[in-house]
Design a protein around this nucleic acid. Structure first.
Length: 707
RNA sequence: GGGCGGUUAGCUCAGCGGUAGAGCGUCUCGUUUACACCGAGAGGGCCGGAGGUUCAAAUCCUUCACCGCCCACCA
């Protein structure tokens, strides 16, 4: 058995019994009943306490009880600790084996005999034995639980057991070994934690160290402001020895090392005295508290210590705030005069798929190595980052890792496609040289992603960072840029598109390297971005201003909406995938027709159309229609079209738009809204109403044509 | 007993005063020369309940319910 700090004690709910014992009162035939969940401790009772205001027992205060078995005479005292509401209102006091009872014992100057040894066996050594019952002898050396059984049986036999009550109570267990802890009076070394805590509280109050998310500072403060003296000695084999030495007469010398202690002792005794060092070691958390500077060479003033203390960010779980974080802050301030780190990032705990805490007994422990074996380290790392919302736990399951493995594979394939098409990274590449709207659009999107991802990382929002990268790679780069670039890669724009693709991929590799280290590193090297091992040292990508970005965004947004509209119609009208259909633009502006001509090849390919042309004159009857800005798309489907289905489709679209318009109109009719809402909000709603109404008008026209 | 967090689409979650979103899953279609670990499309939500503040509430306040956690409590 060793001493423990409060933090190492874990309360567990257990079914147990409450034994109500009858203690005979001296000089009368009355009894006083006390309740206990640990009857064996009655051997060490040194008083029975009642509440000073409790009328029921007032006359008993000052009288004595003859404790059964040991037959010791112990006083009935009045103490606030006794709760009249509980049990009989009288409570047995065992100062050596209960914290509260110890306090009572101190207040009333009671003796404090231990009746258990360090192996939790009954010992009678400290008892003042008088006319004890012979039964007492048989208890010596018995284990606490065996003794409990024997004592209960004996009391029952003697008629001293009033009754037994089944209860559920909190029982202290050692968090490591899991055994039930027995409070025991021992001599230990303590640290005045309160003194250390004061500057540590101030440091966090003043923001010299900040917790992320901020709410954990409450947890820190709550504990630090109510901190108890810290028991730092342990009766274990491993650890730093307590730096205390004892002289021949037991005098204590505390010093940095044996030599200094010896010097102290010699001065004290006036002669050379033999010293023996304390056998105890320091609490492992005490030693761990030194970690931020002891690992940097302290107590020597090393260059490492000068450069790396204080550290920047400590990343850890909330369950370690008291054990380690608080202690490092206290110790850092005390020893180094500064906080050990500026930011404490509290990440969630990794739990199983259903959110259960992993435990060996539950058998739900996920071995990261098996996930890595199945899906790769990159997939696991990316998954954990993507799931780590601020302050929430991570539910880790194979399914998630598997789908993120797909993302890694997607990245790999996209890079392979770039390579196949001669997208070679060039140092000379300059964003300003990009002329094509497609180039400008993807370069602008890359810059925006860099800004978003960087901001997210700086704010420790790893999930936002991962998501921004995911969306850019899969949504922008793969789904649209590469697809739209395919026709161009075979033509006169090939050189620019290759250079832009290579540049964007370079941004992607650098952005994702922190969470997809292996695959990005392999691609970086293989595709010629830099020599092997150089990606981790590459500079973080910087956002760049792209000339004509707004115009490029407008144009690409149009192209993407055009293709999506055609695809939607094809799907909803069940147009066979293999059939190529023509697309006409009705009422289109010159600028729109211009765009249509420019994107002809890409649209043909991505929307499976045979061509796009302006439509003048009457619209064919057997056609599907859709509204795109000022123009109406017309898809002649001939025998493919089901007019009823098309009417239903257009009607549904119109209904949606009408509901939207209605909602906005109601808002704008509200005088309070127009008067009190900010101008730009009102203007925005007016514009939305206009464009929604224009869309409805075009849908009505389209419906009229197929009526 | 004291405190902290959560409750939004089937699942996991983002959004935290001004048009409810993402990923996965589901359904339909698809052998288009990077990728089926893929592509296209669709459906799916009284944003836990009740009050309140506000021109406007998933978002702010009050309160309740349920879930999770921390601290204290061996009569």
């Amino acid at each position: 058995g060793s001493a423990l700090s409060d933090l190492e004690v874990e309360m567990r709910e257990m079914k147990g019994s409450l034994w109500h014992l009858r203690y005979p009162i001296e000089g009368s035939d009355r009894f006083i009943t006390v309740a206990t969940s640990r009857p064996e401790t009655m051997l060490g009772d040194t008083a029975v306490a009642v509440h000073p205001e409790d009328e029921r027992h007032r006359d008993l205060v000052g009288k004595f009880v003859i404790l059964p078995i040991t037959r010791r005479r112990i006083p009935i005292i009045a103490d606030e600790h006794s709760d009249p509401e509980k049990g009989s209102g009288a409570v047995k006091i065992t100062p050596a084996h209960d914290f509260n009872d110890f306090a009572v014992g101190q207040r009333h100057n009671l003796p404090m005999p231990s009746i258990l040894d360090k192996q939790a066996r009954v010992t009678l050594a400290e008892l003042d034995l008088g006319p004890a019952d012979p039964f007492l002898r048989t208890l010596e050396g018995q284990d606490r639980f065996a003794a409990r059984k024997a004592i209960v049986a004996w009391l029952e036999e003697q008629g001293l057991l009033d009754h037994v009550e089944a209860t559920i109570h909190q029982v202290p267990h050692a968090d490591r070994s899991g055994v039930v802890i027995e409070p025991l009076l021992t001599v230990q070394w303590f640290c005045k934690a309160e003194e250390l805590a004061k500057p540590a509280i101030a440091a966090v109050e003043e923001g010299r160290t900040q917790f992320v998310p901020r709410q954990w500072e409450n947890t820190y403060f709550a504990w630090m402001r109510n901190i108890e003296p810290w028991c730092i000695s342990r009766q274990l084999w491993w650890g730093h020895r307590i730096p205390a030495w004892y002289g021949p007469d037991g005098a204590v010398f505390v010093a940095e090392d044996a030599e200094a202690a010896q010097a102290q002792a010699d001065a004290h005794y006036g002669r050379a005295a033999a010293l023996t060092q304390d056998e105890d070691v320091l609490d492992t958390w005490f030693s761990s508290a030194l970690w931020p500077f002891s690992t940097l060479g302290w107590p020597d003033e090393t260059p490492e210590l000068a450069r790396y203390y204080p550290g920047d960010v400590l990343v850890t779980g909330f369950d370690i705030i008291f054990f380690w974080v608080a202690r490092m802050i206290m110790m850092g301030l005390y020893v180094m005069g500064d906080v050990p780190f500026r930011t404490v990032l509290i990440n969630g705990l990794v739990r199983d798929e259903r959110g259960q805490k992993m435990s060996k007994t539950k058998g739900n422990v996920i071995d990261p190595l098996s996930l890595i074996e199945a899906y790769g380290a990159d997939a696991l790392r990316f998954t954990v980052a993507a799931q780590s919302g601020a302050g929430r736990n991570i539910k880790l399951g194979a399914g998630l890792v598997e789908s993120n493995r797909s993302f890694v594979t997607k990245l790999w394939n996209a890079a392979r496609f770039c390579e196949m098409n001669g997208a070679v990274p060039a140092l000379s590449f300059n964003v300003e040289g990009a002329r094509l709207p497609l180039s400008r659009w993807i370069l602008d999107a890359a810059s925006r992603t860099i800004i978003e991802a960087t901001a997210a990382l700086e704010a420790f929002r790893l999930n936002d960072y991962a998501q921004a990268c995911y969306r850019f790679v899969w949504g922008d780069f793969c789904d649209w840029f590469l697809e739209l670039a395919k026709p161009g890669l075979a033509g006169e724009d090939a050189a620019e598109l290759r250079a832009v693709a290579a540049h964007a991929l370079g941004v992607i590799l650098r952005l994702l390297h922190p969470v997809i280290p292996f695959v990005t590193e392999a691609l970086w090297d293989q595709l010629g971005y830099g020599p092997e091992g150089s990606l981790i040292r590459a500079t973080w990508p910087e956002p760049e201003t792209v000339e004509g970005a707004d115009a490029a965004r407008g144009e690409l947004s149009w192209v993407i909406r055009l293709i999506s509209e055609i695809r939607a119609i094809r799907n909803e009208m069940n147009v066979p995938a293999a059939s190529q259909i023509p697309v006409f633009l009705h009422d289109a502006s010159a600028a729109t027709l211009d765009r249509a001509a420019r994107w002809q090849d890409a649209v043909k390919r991505l929307a499976r159309v045979s061509g796009i042309a302006p439509l003048h004159g009457p619209i064919l009857k057997d056609a599907a229609q859709a509204v795109l800005d000022e123009a109406t798309l017309v898809l002649p489907l001939a025998e493919l079209i089901d007019l009823a289905a098309e009417r239903a489709r257009l009607t549904a679209t119109r209904a949606k738009a009408a509901a939207e318009a209605e909602k906005i109109a109601r808002k704008l009719e509200n005088r309070d809204f127009v008067a009190r809402a900010p101008e730009e909000i009102v203007a925005e709603n007016r514009e939305r109403l206009d464009s929604t109404q224009a869309e409805i008008a075009r849908l009505d026209a389209a419906l009229a044509r197929i009526a």
